[in-house]
Structures are given as structure tokens and as C-alpha cells.
Amino acid sequence: MSGAFFTVMKYLIVIAFLFILYSMGSALFYLSRDKGQSSNTVRFLTVRVVLSVVLFLFILLAMKMGWIVPHGLQLKPSG
């Protein structure tokens, strides 16, 4: 697998993380706007939890398959 592939994988993870941030932000927005009256807040929080779990499973899979290598570069030999 080439360097470009690793880069794409990294960006994929970062983008998924941004989606999680977005759904959390939406929950925040409805927390304020609906003042606890509707289920929008809890719905977006549920979306964010599901997204988080999916991303987590994906990271697990990616590490297992060698699509990403933790810390990209190897530990330097010795100091």
C-alpha cells in the first residue's frame, strides 16, 4: 500500500471526526433552541454516539488490516 493510501485513510478518519463534531454541535443548538421540549437534542446525540461507534470500529479494522499504522513513522532507533 502506497503513501497516498495512508494519507487518504488519515483524511477519512479526520472527516468522520468532523461529522461527529457536527452532530454534537447540532445537539447543542437544539439544546438551546428547543429548551428541552422536543427530542431533537437527544436525537442528534444518538446520531453522534452511533457515528462514534462506527468510526471506532473502522479504526480497529483499519489497524488490523494495516491500512493505518499508529504514528505513521517508526520510533527512532535509540537516543
Partner: peptide, 22 residues
């Protein structure tokens, strides 16, 4: 408090990705 908890959870997710994994 639930919201605060979601916040620390998302921060952890960020940590896991940017500190431990990538």
C-alpha cells in the same frame, strides 16, 4: 451534565485519533 459527558467523550475520541492512532 449529559451534554458535558458527550463533550468529554468526543474530546477523547479526538485524543484517541490524533494522539494515539495517527
Amino acid at each position: 451534565v449529559a451534554w458535558y459527558w458527550h463533550f468529554v467523550d468526543v474530546v477523547w475520541l479526538g485524543l484517541f485519533i490524533f494522539v494515539y492512532v495517527l
